[in-house]
Design a protein around this nucleic acid. Structure first.
Ligand SMILES: [Mn+2]
Ligand SMILES: [Mn+2]
Ligand SMILES: [Mn+2]
Ligand SMILES: [Mn+2]
Lengths: 217, 217
DNA sequence: TTACATATTTAGACTAAGCTAAAAATATAT
DNA sequence: ATATATTTTTAGCTTAGTCTAAATATGTAA
């Protein structure tokens, strides 16, 4: 697998989670920041390698083989992110770009040892689950903060968006993985909320609430 | 700098240390395991980028710019090797291939933090010096074991060859970085030696003696 | 059902990095 | 100094991955 092939598989894997049926050429192109024509070429190649099933004008669907390789790359990405944050003290908004590079290092032994060195973590610094050796992704019970009703509470377990800007906003508001959040009010009209975090109480927009995962308590 | 460009610069840097004048096309090709015609293309490109000075039919010479980039890649390679051995408990004969990949990860911050995490080591697991941030390579006083005379002693400080086979031979003989070696006898005719290491006493061929660096005591 | 809009594929071109085979320059040995 | 051998370069092809522009298929709305 080349670096480009791995990135395509990863993108298709993620898109597959977001919607059930086959993944469209344009969706892949948008996610990869490439042109649809480039995607067509690549999915044809990946289809030849039995990584996915491709039907002209329909889209792509990962095979078990392709799914496993994608999960392996995601596993590496997330383990490296844990390393960067836990061992090198990077901040959670600084690790993604570096992990994008590290995820392509090829050595099974390396990943096994890294995993052990890190204490076999289950989640990455953004709360995303780390696939196991066989590519199995543990599904956890989590919902978006926006789904909580007034007077309900949750513990932050992850972020949907993990752009620098969003993560820095959360820092400013003292929200991190493990932080308890109480919904004090919810505006039906625009989906905004008033929440309390620790002793602070403030307003958040719908956009924020829709990008924070919580586990209800 | 692409991965290929970095590898060429690294090869030329190493060849430059081994002999004073400009580095020949064939020498680069041999070291890179590519064809001379490919080397010609690449050195032209690197010359355009001011990484080296290239004179047709003469060879290549790194500029300060090229030398610094090469040293940076070597710095990364050796720091990662230290990480693999010290933190992930890899054996010294298993790390080179992985470091060949890791050395191309681009992030200054990563290397700064990795360096600190490792305690700012001066040498890699094979006894090779780690260039500093500015690409300066500390020259150390060391000689080949083959240069020692009978009844002299040295401490092993590095290996010239670091192939798996050679390193495994050293393990078998209980020779590692820091091991004291006494020359009990030296055969003028074939350069072989009788040495003692700890309580053991044995014969080594010239080939071995010419690939072990020692510091005299 | 026809017409328009959108999605997708095809055709053809480009760059990076490699190769082979042939040509040209340099080095060496009589 | 000439002939031969070696080294290096050039010319022309190849593959991976990308792009633009044009062609084609599919979806939608009158
Ligand atoms: Mn990430
Ligand atoms: Mn992550
Ligand atoms: Mn090495
Ligand atoms: Mn080394």
């Amino acid at each position: 697998m080349t670096l480009a092939e791995e990135n395509y598989l990863k993108a298709i894997f993620h898109l597959d989670l977001e919607s059930e049926d086959e993944v469209s050429t344009n969706a892949i192109a948008e996610r990869m920041e490439t042109k649809p024509s480039s995607v067509t070429d690549m999915v044809k190649k990946l289809a030849e390698k039995k990584m996915l099933i491709y039907k002209r004008y329909k889209g792509a669907q990962l095979t078990e083989k392709g799914r496993k390789i994608a999960a392996g790359v995601i596993r590496k990405h997330r383990l490296w992110e844990v390393f960067l944050v836990e061992k090198l003290n990077f901040h959670w908004d600084e690790v993604h770009e570096i992990a994008e590079q590290l995820e392509h290092i090829k050595s099974d032994e390396l990943i096994t040892r890294l995993d052990n060195f890190l204490g076999n973590p289950d989640f990455d610094p953004h709360g995303d689950p780390i696939p196991d050796k066989d590519g199995v992704l543990k599904r956890t019970e989590k919902k978006l903060l926006s789904e909580l009703e007034k007077n309900h509470s949750g513990v932050c377990v992850g972020v949907k968006e993990s752009s620098g800007g969003f993560l820095q906003y959360l820092d400013k508001k003292k929200i991190a993985i493990g932080t308890k959040i109480n919904v004090l009010g919810k505006e039906f009209f625009d989906g905004s909320m008033v929440i309390s975090v620790g002793n602070e109480q403030f307003f958040i927009s719908k956009l924020i609430a829709e990008n924070l995962y919580v586990q209800t308590i």
